[in-house]
Design a protein around this nucleic acid. Structure first.
Lengths: 200, 200
DNA sequence: CCCTGAACTTGACACTGACAAGATTGCTCC
DNA sequence: GGAGCAATCTTGTCAGTGTCAAGTTCAGGG
């Protein structure tokens, strides 16, 4: 990242930054992961990128604009993560993995009051993730209401992920892998319906 | 509230407000429920209470102080709600009810980066709620790891509550009572262990 | 070569949280 | 009943923030 920047990249001598949008996004994710969205300062992000205080606004318009871009990116990444997982339980595990590996995205995605709800990119990405989340819920045996079963699975995964990120279950999980821990949790849901505890 | 205020209450003619702490807390809960903790402005709260801009600081020190007080109150209320519920599933229902009836408290309680984690009142209230949450998990039949079962139940309730407050399951729940909806969700957890779907 | 639009800068305004120092008040104790 | 004292609230100020408006630099195509 420090090699080929002579032409038009992150060198601060050039008037144009070259890749400011990405730089601001990356810095924003760092800050959010460390201090939450409340700790975000557009001026601070500009400073980190070595750029004037109003430069980020040209790419994201304003604060909601930046956070909406992050949320949309997050839903896209989540959809990517979920799409090639066959079994329902495995998708739950990947949901938890996404929250752990992309905590900043995850937080912002579920703070609607910070986002521009009608943003087309956001809506599209959210719909893609939502579709990936829904697939394969109907083929569970002995589950009367498929939609309700999907909500149950989502609640379990989302709740565990949230409690994990808010340091509310760190003691219980200990030094075990959170994904593995969730895998056993998921065994308690639909316990009677699943063929066997290992049935993946 | 507008009757007996001549002596020393909310009348703006008196130098002392009389009950500023409660007034600020109430106003803060309104704002947080509507716009989240990020929309909070101490100066705005002071304005609503008809008081100078620095008055709230005397009661809560600073922003984290106010939010920590709210979180502590929330954990207390949650403990009250949970303590007189016998069955595990009923405690889950009450957890959801608490989130719906006290959305501002609920949000703040699970945003550790906004709180003063070492506040004694907060720690005490949290411990009380935590104890109320744990009781009776061990007496589930056929559940090998009680702690893990507790985490699963908490995850399910917390996830559903969170998704509810972030408007992510409003379409699925429809005009049904969220508590009733959760009651059926809870039937899917420990489905094989529970004696019967209605076994309360 | 110019010119047009994108990327960025500069400057300003209203607002915020926090702090310090002073004013007012109710309570207690003599 | 009056003096002092601590709690409560005010006033003034400071650095920092988001957002807008207007100007500057720059790259690429006619």
């Amino acid at each position: 990242m420090t090699s080929d920047r002579d032409a038009k990249s992150t060198s601060r001598s050039s008037y144009h930054h070259g890749d400011l949008r990405q730089a601001v996004l990356a810095a924003a994710l760092d800050v959010i992961a460390a201090e939450g969205p409340g700790g975000l300062s557009l001026r601070d992000l500009a400073r980190r990128a070595g750029v004037s205080h109003a430069a980020p606004a040209h790419h994201f318009k304003d604060r909601p604009g930046l956070l909406t871009a992050i949320a949309a990116e997050g839903y896209g990444l989540l959809a990517d993560t979920l799409e090639d997982a066959s079994a329902l339980r495995e998708r739950g595990v990947r949901y938890v993995r996404f929250a752990v590996t992309h905590p900043a995205h995850f937080q912002v995605m579920f703070r609607p009051e910070l986002l521009r709800a009608d943003d087309p990119d956001l809506l599209a990405a959210k719909e893609r993730a939502s579709a990936a989340l829904r697939t394969g819920v109907a083929d569970l045996p002995d589950v009367p209401d498929a939609r309700q079963a999907g909500i149950a699975a989502w609640s379990l995964a989302h709740g565990f992920a949230t409690l994990l990120l808010t340091h509310n279950v760190t003691a219980a999980v200990g030094d075990r892998d959170p994904e593995e821990y969730f895998r056993s949790l998921a065994g308690l849901l639909f316990a009677s319906q699943l063929p066997s505890p290992e049935g993946e």
